[in-house]
């Protein structure tokens, strides 16, 4: 299952100095809430992406702790102020401590 979990990130790759850049992200993940029952009436154990973290050139921008109330295939968007060229690194971590990362270069021109 974890093979088809893939983060997708949409962000402009060129920016003016100091520009506020919107980052849109989506990771394909079922986000089992722990509330759902399978065909036999047994609860499906909780397995969600519980943490999201964003850094730019290694400096923290934002992070989020997610609860089961986040939809399947969690879509998250936020802003980052780009003062210099650099790499936006995003990390998603699930309940099993499995994590996925994505790196995007943003150039200031």
């Amino acid at each position: 299952m974890s093979d088809d979990i893939k983060p997708r990130v949409r962000v402009q790759t060129k920016a003016k100095k100091g520009e506020l850049v919107e980052v849109k992200t989506l990771v394909t993940h079922p986000m089992e809430s722990g509330q759902r029952k399978d065909a036999d009436g047994k609860l499906v154990p909780r397995l969600i992406v519980s943490a999201f973290d964003a850094t730019f050139n290694g400096k923290p921008v934002m992070n989020a702790k997610l609860e089961p109330a986040i939809s399947a295939n969690p879509y998250l968007s936020f802003f980052v102020r780009v003062d210099e060229s650099g790499t936006l690194k995003l990390t998603w971590t699930d309940d099993n401590k499995q994590s996925w990362t994505s790196e995007t270069k943003i150039e200031v021109g």
Binding site: M62, A64, E67, P68, I70, P74, F79, R81
Partner: peptide
């Protein structure tokens, strides 16, 4: 009104530039 009240908890630094986020929620 969900089974558990929590949805998400964010933290920011000034580097975010703008404290605005979007997400999709189960209700």
């Amino acid at each position: 009104g969900n089974p558990n009240p929590g949805v998400a908890s964010y933290s920011f630094t000034p580097l975010a530039g703008k404290a605005e986020i979007q997400l999709r929620v189960r209700l």
